[in-house]
Design a binder for these strands. Structure first.
Length: 424
RNA sequence: GGAGAAGUACCCAAGUGGCUCAAGGGGCUCCCCUGCUAAGGGAGUAGUUCGGUAACACGGAGCGCGGGUUCAAAUCCCGCCUUCUCCGCCA
């Protein structure tokens, strides 16, 4: 959520920043609501102050045997004005809050305007592997090596679902272990959160109200705690752990990671060329999150990018790191770097990790704050990064590590978990 | 799913409609006395949030959450959430 004070003081600046993502903001409407809100608060509170004052007098008047009926009549009138006023205020505040919740985050100053086409590659690791034989794509490899059963996956759950079998499941699990082990070594706290989250989590993470339809709802109730959904990423859970809390600066940063499957509808996004596990309704991901003070969030961002890169490099995969243009960053994020790994059969790079800094955007939504050494309270910064998503790593591995005879060499870091050097 | 009990500030806790716009205690902070791994006396202590102000002042909200009744609600009524105890169900 964008600070209303910033919109008040620098409307043009906010509009310009949002324009970088191609978003046209209705800031005048918001400012009108804001002004209306403050005006009505002033009126209502004057009435309430009067009510409190008179109320305090009533017991005394009664004691002295004075006639309180005229006072009652007047108070009833004030009471009616107050409730009318409060009702109006609630309507205004609801609308104001909704409008603010729908505004995307302000991109950082150094994030360039525009969409995908303006993304900038800032690092390339390794080289495109060259093959002196006709390569197979990951679907062919996974089928022939019996790593993935696509057809039976569809039988169980429909299009966009697959079944890891045997060595496929082992490699998947090995990847997760490799990631988990690394994060623990780096001092991050391992979290296994619930997969069904309440509505507030979606709001706090910035996915709701805009992307409500992109998640799987598990309760049909329209409101209340029963309105739960399957998390689309562990970020949704992790950034809400401290929702509504005031952290002590000395206990920060919070460095967390979680493993969860991610559940997504991906409606309309399935493309013919993205066969196999490139995009599915359920995929595994290890997610990193940091909760920091504003001063340390930039350094934390670099740390997360470094960690994500190190994981892919550890696997020996050719990838590129891109700094996304404003329009390609997700709505909640001020900056995002993507790690894209080379998929030989497609001849393109595919995202396997996305590291982002939300600044205080999520913290303002879910009221996550911290108290510094002087007792001053401020909003935290939240950062997240995949470390990593396996559904695209596994295809990249089998494709980049494939051999002439159809076997796949197991990356060295996974061998202790897989128990073999080559999958035949 | 059913029955019962509970939810008050950092912690414990009193409080069945009005000098309680939350008593008392613990803890914490400061002061006094004492003088050193004691003990005693006194004062302060509602965090937060919203409006307001240059900053103060000042005012509103706030007793799990949301409504309602009333001139007035921690207190009465309704709905919900959470915790505990018991029962039922349990792939």
């Amino acid at each position: 959520m964008i600070d209303i004070n910033l919109i008040r003081s620098d409307k043009a600046g906010v509009a310009a920043a949002l324009a970088k993502r191609g978003y046209t903001a209705e800031l005048d409407g918001i400012l009108d609501l804001d002004a209306a809100r403050r005006e009505i608060i002033g009126k209502t509170e004057a009435l309430k102050a009067e009510k409190n004052k008179v109320s305090a007098d009533i017991p005394r008047m009664k004691k002295n045997g004075e006639d309180v009926q005229p006072v009652f009549a007047k108070m009833r009138e004030i009471g009616e004005q107050i409730s009318a006023s409060d009702e109006k205020l609630k309507t205004i505040e609801d609308e104001l809050r909704h409008n603010l919740l729908c505004l995307p985050n302000l991109p950082d100053a150094d994030v360039v305007a525009g969409g995908k086409e303006n993304n900038a590659v800032i690092k390339i690791y390794g080289e495109k592997p060259s093959f002196d034989f006709p390569i197979k794509n990951h679907v062919e490899l996974c089928e022939s090596l019996k790593l993935i059963d696509y057809e039976r996956g569809v039988k169980l759950a429909g299009n966009g679902s697959w079944l890891y079998t045997g060595r496929g499941a082992v490699i998947e699990w090995a990847l997760l272990n490799y990631f988990i082990k690394t994060h623990i070594t780096d001092g991050y706290t391992f979290v296994l959160p619930p997969h069904m989250l309440n509505y507030e989590c979606g709001l706090g993470a910035g996915q709701f109200p805009k992307f409500e339809d992109d998640v799987y709802r598990v309760d049909t109730a329209e409101d209340g705690a029963a309105r739960r959904f399957m998390l689309p990423t562990a970020e949704t859970a992790l950034v809400n752990i401290y929702r509504g809390e005031i952290l002590e600066e000395k206990d920060m940063p919070k460095k967390l990671f979680a493993y969860t499957p991610c559940y997504r509808k991906e409606a309309g996004s399935y493309r013919a060329e993205e066969r196999g596990m490139i995009r599915g309704h359920q995929f595994d991901k290890v997610e990193m999150v940091q909760v920091t003070t504003p001063d340390s969030s930039k350094a934390a961002f670099e740390e997360l990018v470094g960690k994500a890169c190190a994981l892919v490099e550890g696997l020996g995969l050719h990838y590129r790191l891109s700094k996304l243009a404003a329009g390609d960053c997700s709505a909640s994020m001020a900056r995002t770097y993507d790690i894209e790994v080379w998929i030989p059969s497609m001849g393109i790079y595919k995202e396997v990790s996305s590291v982002s800094n939300a600044n205080d955007y999520q913290a303002r939504r879910n009221m996550t704050r911290y108290r510094d050494g002087n007792g001053k309270i401020g909003y935290v910064h939240t950062l997240n990064g995949s470390g990593l998503a396996t559904s695209r790593i596994l295809p990249a591995i089998v494709e980049q590590y494939q051999n002439r005879n159809g076997s796949v060499t197991v990356p060295e870091v996974l061998r202790e978990f897989v128990g073999t050097d080559v999958i035949k």
